[in-house]
Simulated assay, not measured.
Amino acid sequence: MMVRAVDDADRTWMRELLIERWGESRVVVGGVARDAAALPALMAVGGDGRPAGLLTYDTGPAGLEVVSLDALERGGGVGTALLAAAREVAAALGLRRVWLITTNDNVDALRFYQRRGMHITAVHPGAADRGRLIKPAIPVEGEYRIDIHDEIELALSAAPVRIRTGGLRDIPVVLALLDAATAWLAARGRTGQWGTEPHSTNPRRLAALAAWVPQGHLHIADLDGRPVGALVVGAAPDHVPAASGPELYVNLLVTSRTHTGKGLGGALLDHARSLALHRGLPLLRVDCYRGDDRALVGWYERQGFTATAPFTVTLPDGAEWPGQVLEQDLTSRV
């Protein structure tokens, strides 16, 4: 079996298959109606040259979204091959993750996707009911006689990065990442952000990590089984202006400098977004160093954040540390 991109000659077959499987080629997910037959797509072709399956997708700031996935026969590895191909397309396009939405009744699909490395990142109660207002043909009762009300979002990284909850054993790893990042900045004359002293000898940093871990705030990115990044999310620190409503705050983000260009920081921010949405928090905020050429502020802006309130912290030696708060409204994400 092989997987290839569809071409114009396949469009009629695509539309016919979608109508057969879904009642029409229009698909409503996340409150958005799209003609799946007009989207980019991947086709699985069997050894006899005949179509074996179809995956349609869309792309945007949230990554590559699988809009529909159909295997003509179950159990032959068609769905697995199509999902793997979609992951390769996402990576080639520079997108950080593959994601999709299914309904709460789709127990077989939930098992399939999770066994292939996808994680539930958000649940949208009542979303299927709202979708029915756009597409009345969406059934009220689905598989296993389960009433269809909600949408469930799943995702996996386009790169082989696994993000897990950190433990006490990960504290030395995080300190090593921070030390390496500080040395990297210092070697380039950028000592304003974190200074020159190692974090591993800073009692305040060690105490903060020791407090974050039991609360489940630390998350570790593993690449090929090795830790290459860390994220801490929780409540906003006292030195930044208060948010206007419920939020999740990024307290720490650090990645391995030897893996620059692999999208680790973006993958960790995607994880923070998913955590916020899963907890029903509509706002994600972070602060960073505002000095020098505002390079770090610019990086967060490229990740979809908007700079809001600047602030200044007076350090123990009397020096002033310029900071910038940035935020992202998660209710408007694609």
Results as ranks from 00 to 15, higher is better:
residue 58 D to F: 01
residue 38 A to M: 12
residue 4 R to T: 02
residue 159 A to V: 05
residue 229 G to P: 12
residue 286 V to P: 03
residue 59 T to P: 00
residue 188 R to I: 11
residue 207 A to N: 12
residue 281 L to K: 08
residue 118 M to I: 09
residue 20 E to G: 07
residue 161 V to I: 14
residue 100 L to Y: 07
residue 321 W to R: 11
residue 78 V to T: 06
residue 228 V to M: 08
residue 35 D to C: 03
residue 222 D to E: 15
residue 145 R to V: 07
residue 228 V to I: 11
residue 257 R to Q: 15
residue 115 R to Y: 09
residue 269 L to Y: 05
residue 68 S to A: 14
residue 110 L to H: 15
residue 258 T to P: 06
residue 14 M to G: 00
residue 246 P to M: 12
residue 183 A to K: 12
residue 146 I to D: 12
residue 110 L to Q: 15
residue 277 L to G: 09
residue 305 F to Q: 03
residue 295 A to D: 09
residue 84 A to N: 09
residue 3 V to H: 02
residue 106 N to V: 13
residue 40 P to R: 00
residue 282 P to M: 09
residue 44 A to K: 04
residue 309 A to W: 11
residue 27 V to S: 01
residue 228 V to K: 02
residue 4 R to H: 04
residue 15 R to A: 15
residue 140 V to I: 14
residue 132 R to L: 10
residue 208 A to C: 06
residue 84 A to V: 04
residue 137 A to V: 14
residue 243 A to Q: 07
residue 251 N to F: 09
residue 116 R to Y: 01
residue 115 R to D: 13
residue 292 D to E: 12
residue 330 L to Y: 03
residue 224 D to Y: 13
residue 158 A to V: 00
residue 30 G to I: 08
residue 10 D to M: 07
residue 68 S to Q: 02
residue 277 L to I: 14
residue 212 W to S: 05
residue 299 W to R: 13
residue 153 E to I: 04
residue 125 P to A: 11
residue 187 A to H: 14
residue 82 L to W: 00
residue 309 A to L: 11
residue 89 V to K: 00
residue 83 L to R: 00
residue 126 G to P: 08
residue 132 R to P: 12
residue 146 I to G: 10
residue 262 K to N: 12
residue 327 E to H: 10
residue 45 V to W: 01
residue 205 R to H: 10
residue 319 A to H: 14
residue 36 A to G: 01
residue 194 W to E: 01
residue 197 E to P: 06
residue 78 V to A: 03
residue 263 G to C: 09
residue 273 R to G: 09
residue 261 G to L: 13
residue 199 H to Q: 06
residue 193 Q to P: 04
residue 160 P to R: 02
residue 294 R to Q: 13
residue 157 S to M: 13
residue 46 G to H: 07
residue 121 T to S: 15
residue 40 P to D: 00
residue 55 L to I: 02
residue 315 L to F: 07
residue 170 D to S: 08
residue 254 V to C: 12
residue 256 S to Q: 07
residue 309 A to T: 14
residue 63 G to W: 01
residue 327 E to Y: 01
residue 52 A to Q: 02
residue 214 P to Y: 05
residue 271 H to N: 08
residue 252 L to W: 01
residue 70 D to L: 04
residue 77 G to P: 03
residue 180 A to Q: 13
residue 298 G to Q: 14
residue 166 G to K: 02
residue 121 T to K: 14
residue 246 P to Y: 10
residue 137 A to L: 15
residue 325 V to A: 04
residue 239 H to L: 10
residue 129 D to N: 12
residue 254 V to W: 06
residue 290 R to L: 09
residue 21 R to M: 08
residue 311 F to K: 11
residue 185 L to I: 13
residue 97 R to D: 05
residue 268 L to N: 02
residue 284 L to R: 01
residue 136 P to S: 14
residue 172 P to M: 03
residue 329 D to N: 15
residue 198 P to T: 09
residue 25 S to G: 05
residue 154 L to C: 11
residue 291 G to A: 01
residue 28 V to H: 04
residue 81 A to W: 04
residue 142 G to N: 11
residue 16 E to W: 07
residue 23 G to V: 08
residue 56 T to W: 03
residue 239 H to S: 11
residue 41 A to T: 00
residue 59 T to W: 09
residue 33 A to S: 15
residue 20 E to N: 09
residue 109 A to I: 10
residue 50 R to G: 11
residue 117 G to N: 03
residue 221 A to C: 05
residue 248 L to F: 10
residue 23 G to L: 13
residue 286 V to E: 00
residue 93 L to H: 11
residue 248 L to E: 03
residue 221 A to V: 04
